[in-house]
Simulated scan of single mutants.
Amino acid sequence: MPLSKEDVAGIADYARIALSEEELDEMTSYMNEAVALLEPICEYDLDGVEPTFHPIGGLSNVMGNDVVDDSTRALPIDSALLNAASTQGRYFRVPSILGDEEGDR
């Protein structure tokens, strides 16, 4: 079922996109071509296939916690800052990249 100009105008209005009549005609044609490209998907037998909302299924947070489990492996702050060009307390000090007139902070 092809999209009508009214359908495309409604989508454009929802997206807050102003389209002239010429642009509306062009976008209607473009969107109908895009929908036609998806037609082969309708040929698949999907009976019994559960819908997924993520391509990897039930995957949840796979990142580990940001905690050091072994304090003997952690690099001491003094060692980490030893060869730094400039430091400020426990931190590396670097030049500003934002064009700040006051210089680096």
Score class of each variant (00 low, 15 high):
residue 37 L to M: 09
residue 101 E to P: 12
residue 97 I to T: 09
residue 4 S to E: 07
residue 23 E to G: 07
residue 83 N to K: 15
residue 46 L to D: 03
residue 16 R to P: 00
residue 98 L to E: 06
residue 41 I to L: 15
residue 32 N to V: 04
residue 73 R to V: 07
residue 65 N to L: 07
residue 104 D to A: 15
residue 52 T to G: 11
residue 30 Y to F: 15
residue 8 V to K: 05
residue 3 L to G: 06
residue 94 V to T: 14
residue 64 G to F: 03
residue 52 T to S: 12
residue 85 A to C: 12
residue 51 P to Q: 05
residue 33 E to H: 10
residue 39 E to D: 13
residue 100 D to M: 14
residue 39 E to F: 07
residue 21 E to Q: 03
residue 24 L to M: 00
residue 9 A to R: 10
residue 72 T to Y: 03
residue 38 L to I: 05
residue 11 I to E: 03
residue 84 A to I: 09
residue 40 P to M: 07
residue 28 T to M: 12
residue 61 N to K: 01
residue 56 I to T: 12
residue 45 D to E: 11
residue 76 P to C: 04
residue 25 D to C: 03
residue 87 T to C: 09
residue 35 V to I: 07
residue 40 P to Q: 06
residue 54 H to D: 13
residue 9 A to C: 02
residue 69 D to Q: 00
residue 68 V to H: 01
residue 80 A to S: 08
residue 70 D to W: 02
residue 47 D to H: 09
residue 5 K to G: 13
residue 6 E to H: 09
residue 74 A to H: 02
residue 2 P to V: 07
residue 95 P to F: 10
residue 54 H to E: 13
residue 91 Y to S: 04
residue 61 N to D: 10
residue 61 N to H: 00
residue 84 A to K: 08
residue 85 A to G: 15
residue 8 V to R: 05
residue 94 V to S: 06
residue 104 D to Q: 11
residue 73 R to I: 11
residue 94 V to D: 04
residue 47 D to T: 12
residue 80 A to G: 09
residue 42 C to L: 12
residue 89 G to D: 09
residue 82 L to W: 07
residue 85 A to V: 15
residue 47 D to I: 10
residue 88 Q to L: 13
residue 30 Y to H: 08
residue 104 D to H: 08
residue 81 L to P: 13
residue 79 S to A: 13
residue 89 G to N: 11
residue 105 R to G: 14
residue 57 G to S: 05
residue 38 L to T: 15
residue 43 E to A: 13
residue 96 S to C: 13
residue 61 N to E: 04
residue 83 N to T: 14
residue 65 N to C: 04
residue 28 T to R: 03
residue 44 Y to Q: 02
residue 27 M to Q: 10
residue 95 P to S: 13
residue 18 A to Q: 03
residue 11 I to A: 06
residue 91 Y to N: 12
residue 56 I to W: 14
residue 83 N to E: 14
residue 84 A to T: 05
residue 42 C to Q: 12
residue 87 T to D: 12
residue 51 P to L: 08
residue 85 A to F: 14
residue 30 Y to P: 00
residue 88 Q to G: 11
residue 6 E to A: 12
residue 43 E to N: 13
residue 27 M to E: 11
residue 39 E to C: 03
residue 82 L to P: 03
residue 51 P to D: 08
